[in-house]
Simulated scan of single mutants.
Amino acid sequence: MQFTAFERSKQGTGASRRLRNTGRTPGIVFGGTTAPAVIELDHNSLWFALQKEAFHAALLDMELNGNTEKVVLRNVQYHPFKPLVLHVDFQRVDENTRVRKKVPLHFINAENSPAVKQDKCLVNHAMTEVVVDCLAMQIPEFITVDLGNAVKGQSIHTNDLVLPAGVKVIVHGKPNPGIATLVEPKEEIIAAPVAAAAGDKKGKKKK
């Protein structure tokens, strides 16, 4: 994905506020052998780009002053309740830069699995994304989790993921946390109002 940024001449809280009032978003790009640069972006273009999953995980091409640099999104600050991006951070990367990034999980073929198709199980998602460690040029846009052969009661763990070459999942706490489980739907048992009916009969008296 490619986007355009512009050099920002003024800094500070007041300057950033005035910038936002003109439909621009302040930001910064850092990393590499070049000094950090303060930038600004068109807010609406940035807002719509942020709605795309790939903008958060994939390698990006940033055009700045006629030059194109490889960057990754590092941080986004949103307004507490308004649809407004307050600030955005990018990191310059090259073929030697190693990064840790959150990557979304795409679950496929659940409807064709024995668990869902035959046993009417539900897929309980414990995780929808994982943190990966890899070279910047190897960042996957997403990781596919194929549930086509899943059976009732099966749990899918991080060790079951099929990862691209050079990509490693970083976990904290449990060494092999669960990602999804195929569980049977719970049946609701509705008790008939027998007790109430019996009470009504006892309450009736012969005249």
Rank of each mutant, 00 (worst) to 15 (best):
M1A: 12
A5V: 09
F6V: 01
R8E: 02
R8Y: 05
G14I: 04
A15Q: 10
A15E: 10
R18M: 10
N21M: 07
N21R: 13
P26Q: 02
P26M: 06
G27H: 05
V29C: 07
V29P: 04
F30S: 13
F30L: 09
A35P: 08
P36C: 03
A37C: 14
I39K: 05
I39C: 06
N44V: 12
N44L: 14
K52A: 11
A54E: 13
F55K: 00
L59W: 03
D61M: 09
E63S: 14
N65T: 11
G66L: 02
L73E: 01
N75M: 07
H79C: 06
H79S: 08
F81Y: 12
L84K: 11
L86M: 12
H87D: 09
V93F: 03
T97A: 06
R98S: 06
P104M: 02
N109F: 07
E111G: 06
N112V: 11
S113A: 09
V116G: 05
K117D: 03
Q118A: 03
L122V: 14
M127W: 00
T128R: 13
E129S: 14
V130T: 07
C134L: 07
L135A: 09
M137H: 13
I139D: 05
E141L: 04
F142E: 10
F142V: 00
I143S: 01
D146V: 05
L147I: 07
G148S: 15
G148R: 10
G148H: 08
V151I: 13
G153E: 08
I156R: 01
H157N: 14
T158E: 09
L161P: 04
L161D: 06
L161G: 07
L163T: 06
L163D: 06
L163E: 06
L163H: 07
A165R: 12
G166I: 07
V167E: 04
K168E: 14
I170W: 04
K174E: 15
G178H: 07
I179T: 03
L182Q: 05
V183I: 13
V183D: 08
E184W: 00
P185T: 10
E187W: 00
I190Y: 08
A191R: 12
A192E: 14
A196Y: 00
K201E: 01
K202L: 12
G203M: 00
